[in-house]
Simulated scan of single mutants.
Amino acid sequence: MNEVRSLWWACRVPGLKEPFDTAHLRVFYPARATGSDAERLTGVVAADAGSGPFPVVVLLPGINVPADSYRWLAVLLAGRGFVVVTPELVGELFGGSHGVTPGIDLEACGPGAYGSRATTPLIGAVLAALAERAPASPLAGLLDAERVVVGGHSAGGTVALQSAAHVPGLRGVFTYGAHTLVAAALGHPPGTVLPVGADVPVLLMSGEHDGVVAASTDRYGAAPAAIADPVARTFHDALTDAGGAHAWVKIAGAGHFTICDPVDATSARSFLEAPQAGGDQARALLGRLAAAFCAASLPERPSPADTRAYGALLAPPHPGLVSVLRR
Score class of each variant (00 low, 15 high):
residue 35 G to Y: 02
residue 43 G to M: 05
residue 50 G to K: 06
residue 37 D to R: 13
residue 17 K to E: 10
residue 26 R to Y: 04
residue 43 G to V: 04
residue 48 D to C: 08
residue 23 A to C: 04
residue 24 H to G: 01
residue 30 P to A: 06
residue 26 R to P: 03
residue 37 D to T: 13
residue 34 T to Q: 13
residue 46 A to C: 05
residue 32 R to D: 07
residue 19 P to S: 14
residue 20 F to C: 09
residue 20 F to Y: 15
residue 53 P to A: 13
residue 31 A to Y: 02
residue 18 E to F: 06
residue 46 A to E: 09
residue 50 G to Q: 05
residue 18 E to V: 11
residue 23 A to L: 04
residue 25 L to G: 04
residue 43 G to H: 04
residue 34 T to C: 11
residue 22 T to N: 00
residue 28 F to D: 15
residue 27 V to I: 06
residue 49 A to L: 03
residue 36 S to L: 08
residue 54 F to M: 10
residue 26 R to M: 07
residue 38 A to K: 11
residue 24 H to K: 04
residue 40 R to L: 05
residue 49 A to T: 13
residue 54 F to T: 15
residue 29 Y to P: 04
residue 26 R to K: 13
residue 28 F to A: 15
residue 23 A to E: 02
residue 40 R to G: 06
residue 39 E to T: 12
residue 26 R to Q: 14
residue 18 E to L: 12
residue 49 A to N: 08
residue 21 D to T: 12
residue 24 H to W: 01
residue 45 V to Y: 14
residue 30 P to L: 12
residue 49 A to W: 08
residue 54 F to A: 15
residue 49 A to C: 10
residue 17 K to V: 14
residue 22 T to G: 01
residue 29 Y to I: 08
residue 28 F to N: 10
residue 23 A to T: 01
residue 16 L to F: 01
residue 54 F to E: 15
residue 29 Y to S: 05
residue 51 S to K: 13
residue 43 G to K: 05
residue 34 T to N: 10
residue 52 G to V: 07
residue 47 A to S: 13
